[in-house]
């Protein structure tokens, strides 16, 4: 295939313990480390491996947001993507509008495959890939743990509640990645230097002529309910006694 398009979302780093602001207006993101959404990193790794196997010729990374998202796109370029597109948007864009933006980029670039993470670890929505596939009238293969290609189709193993499901989808298609698809590579310093010379185009969202979708408003944020502190027992006999006390065994 010719092109693979990979979405990279800038999110609060996986290791940061997110806290709700005291006034309930949102979560604390000032001064917090930002990274590529881990599932998107897996998507990019897979695209690079497909290209390295000679099954694709170009990997394009795309992100939406402020100029800050350039950082994540540069990391993507350092991992090995060929070029990057930043769609500059007001800070918060709802998933359906984001899918519409991606679709308009797809119409320009005509990729054979779009690889996205199955969910972003900030909003945990798990929607983008499915929405994009719907708007594009193309197949979706979500939660992928293995991907192979033959005769213009992809065979995708999916991590589903019952086990592993395999489906076949005609290309072009949208595939969203699960955790065990691969282990992303580490970026080496010379690659970071090389990435600075790779093309990164910025497109203003206003120039794409997208109709914004009616957004779902977020009216309040709260920390989760805390469980009460429990008891410690010294041995198995006390554990069994405690469980009996609660009527659990």
């Amino acid at each position: 295939m010719e092109k693979i398009l990979v979405g990279l979302k800038r999110v609060v780093d996986y290791n940061v313990r997110v806290r709700v602001k005291n006034d309930g207006s949102g979560v604390e993101t000032d001064g917090v480390k930002m990274s590529i959404n881990p599932f998107d990193e897996i998507a990019l790794e897979e695209a690079l491996r497909i290209k390295e196997r000679g099954e694709a010729s170009e990997v394009i990374v795309i992100s939406m947001g402020s100029q800050d998202a350039q950082q994540q796109l540069r990391t993507g370029l350092a991992m090995g993507a060929d070029r990057a597109i930043l769609v500059e948007t007001p800070e918060s864009v709802d998933p359906l509008s984001r899918a519409r933006v991606l679709l308009s980029i797809i119409e320009r670039e005509s990729p054979d495959l779009v690889l996205l993470g199955k969910q972003a670890i900030d909003d945990d929505n798990n929607q983008m890939g499915q929405m994009l596939a719907a708007l594009w009238s193309r197949p979706q293969a979500t939660f992928a743990s293995n991907i192979t290609f033959q005769n213009g189709a992809a065979t995708v193993t999916r991590e589903v509640d019952a086990g592993l499901e395999t489906i076949e989808v005609d290309l072009p298609a949208v595939i969203t990645t699960d955790l065990r698809l691969n282990e992303p590579r580490y970026v080496k310093l010379p690659d970071i230097m090389k990435a600075k010379k790779k093309p990164l185009d910025t497109v203003a969202v206003a120039d794409l002529g997208i109709d914004g979708a009616p957004a779902i408003s977020e009216t309040a944020f709260a920390p989760p309910a805390q469980r009460e502190k429990g008891i410690m027992v010294d041995d198995v006999a006390s554990l069994v006694a405690a469980l009996k006390d609660k009527g659990l065994i």
Binding site: V18, V20, D122, D123, D124, E218, F221, A222, P224
Partner: peptide
């Protein structure tokens, strides 16, 4: 609904 792996609970309103 929960966000950030359940570290925050957000109240949302559909249009």
């Amino acid at each position: 609904r929960p966000i950030y792996a359940g570290n925050a609970i957000v109240t949302v309103e559909a249009p």
